[in-house]
Nucleic acid binder design. Structure first.
Lengths: 335, 335
DNA sequence: TTGTTAAAGGAAAGCGCTTACTAATGTGTC
DNA sequence: GACACATTAGTAAGCGCTTTCCTTTAACAA
């Protein structure tokens, strides 16, 4: 299996390798007929361009980086997989993707070891800003997902966590709840802040009771939901509804209730956020908010593709609205 | 920010670029002192080798491919993430990883578009064999995970699904169960077959009852567990214990029981497989088998690394044993 | 002194590709 | 027939790196 290069093809076609290169890149400098002939030969020979050589002269790597704030902890696997899947589908052929966590890369020049042609940053935290700015300064085509960025010059696709949490909390209030607990997410995540703010605003506006001991700090991981819920249930008085800032923690919280002999939702209601795939299999089925991950990712990749081929004119900013998903984990207190 | 190449360094150090290259690659042909000087300059200048140029001459791509049988369906997100994470950690610096699904690549020469330096194949199905053989024939360093491969010349890390399912079923039998149902996994997955075989062997050996209508075909996805369970519960007689071939389907099955007014485990016991992270948050906590994913992946990457740097002598074969995880979803019928 | 050898580093080729330049044709105009 | 000027294709340079030869210098033996 001899390596077939443009030179191999050139000989076969009785043209120079220059012409082959041009034909394969659809240059207007070669006749259609010649192109056809050359392409045919390339096909027959099973020619595959050497991406290193091509990249070397074009100063490209054909690798696009996908960066998450963290890989092990904050980012949910299904979100990650979704991003990867859509990226593969939506990216032009020939590109590889490389996954990394910003946290792990930070400070080091590790990032520049791979010279990415473009990047998708799935950002959870303002801690990522330095990294993001660095990429933009370098002139790298980059798209930021998930978190709102205060720069005009970069495409940014987000969801409105505040709005989603608001919808959710307002629903709980409509169902007659007046005593609320909160399990917060990982502390430096913006989503944590937004969801919490909606919680505070809605409870304040509706005159609901929120005792300090009903507000617990979690990490977005299931175990922290479990522990936080135990603490909340340990208080003298207990809330009627607890908002766990994501579904993972909600699952842990439900578990804690069960372990301590509380029935969900009869004794206590639990609401989550994200609508993870298993949310509808929990007992009770979790009332939550669907985060439009798919859309965010799809639009993000589309934008990056445009950036890559130069067809992007102005940066795109888009906020995709989340949907309230009502299931069975909230008791109707009005009846 | 001028691009700094070995030539930039060479000028600064008053040596030829050749010497720089050698110094940076720790060649014995340059004096230690010279090396130190050159490395210092490289550091100061923030030099990053151009991977394309390096790859071009060394005929390497610095990309290793990670292939899954399928990406959307059969492979669980957390497994996938685990593989990615460990790969990142364990692979030598400078390498990028590229994720792909065999299914999507198959037939096309798409695979050869990227010229991988090595590959990890996470195989679920014998359908992957053609692909695997092709890679081996090409002489690509490759390691197969998850599924047993009948080739002597390739490293292979697996778990024993038959053994795991056997342990699980034997436990259920010990708990007094004598009427068993089965929800099978995706049909062309080897794991499906192995788990089913253990089910059949144990039930046969223990003289348990297994009615045909208690055996349903699933897909490994939660919904199929739900539907299958509904079908099983629709039978005139029902089993006392149902083995769902993975936790996702078990979750669906539990849900179906609940919806139809059956209590788990009081009316019916459910057992799963894999020990997904949420398994201990289901209600009831799921009795299942822990699949040693971490170990498989870690050993796989280690092997590939050795393959890559030529320090592998003989292919490694290893079967890692799964662990029974007893929780609350199986009722003790003996009391 | 001459010869031999080891050590250290340089010159140049070349990896496979794109892309200025250049050259060879053909075509139309006066 | 002489001129411009498209059209098509070829020549050669060069992307940043490794590596094969060479060359230089120093050290040592005879």
């Amino acid at each position: 299996m001899e390596e077939v290069t443009i030179l191999t093809i050139a000989k076969r076609a009785n043209v120079s390798h220059t012409t082959v290169s041009r034909a394969l890149n659809d240059s207007p400098l070669v006749k259609e007929e010649t192109k056809r002939k050359i392409r045919k030969i390339a096909d027959d020979l099973g020619y595959v361009p050497n991406i290193n050589a091509k990249g070397l002269v074009e100063k490209r790597s054909f690798i696009i980086g996908i960066f998450f704030s963290e890989l092990d902890t904050g980012t949910s696997p299904s979100f990650l997989v979704d991003v990867i899947n859509r990226s593969k589908e939506a990216l032009p052929v020939g590109y590889s993707i490389s996954i990394d966590s910003i946290e792990a890369l930070d400070g080091s020049n590790a990032m520049s070891r791979h010279q990415y042609d473009g990047a998708i940053v799935v950002s959870q935290s303002t801690n990522d800003d330095a990294f993001i700015n660095m990429m933009i300064e370098r002139g790298l085509p980059v798209v930021i997902l998930n978190r709102k960025i205060n720069r005009e010059d970069v495409s940014n696709f987000t969801t409105d966590d505040y709005l989603g949490a608001r919808k959710l909390m307002e629903y709980a209030v409509r169902m007659g709840h007046q005593k609320f607990g909160l399990i917060k997410g990982a502390s430096d995540f913006v989503s944590t802040h937004d969801r919490q703010q909606a919680f505070l605003d809605v409870t304040a506006a509706s005159g609901a009771t929120v005792k300090p001991e009903w507000i617990q700090q979690g990490t977005y991981l299931p175990d922290s939901g479990y522990e936080s819920m135990r603490t909340i249930l340990g208080a003298i008085d207990t809330p009627t509804c607890v908002f766990a800032s994501n579904d993972d923690m909600a699952a842990g919280a439900v578990r804690a209730c069960q372990d301590l002999g509380y029935s969900v939702p009869d004794d206590i209601s639990i609401i989550g956020y994200d609508d993870m795939s298993y949310a509808k299999y929990l007992v009770p089925r979790l009332t939550t908010v669907r985060k439009p991950t798919d859309d965010i990712v799809q639009e993000g990749i589309d934008a990056l593709t445009k950036l890559l081929d130069g067809s992007m004119t102005d940066p795109i900013k888009k906020v995709i609205v989340p949907t309230l998903i009502v299931r069975d984990s909230v008791k109707d207190l009005r009846k």
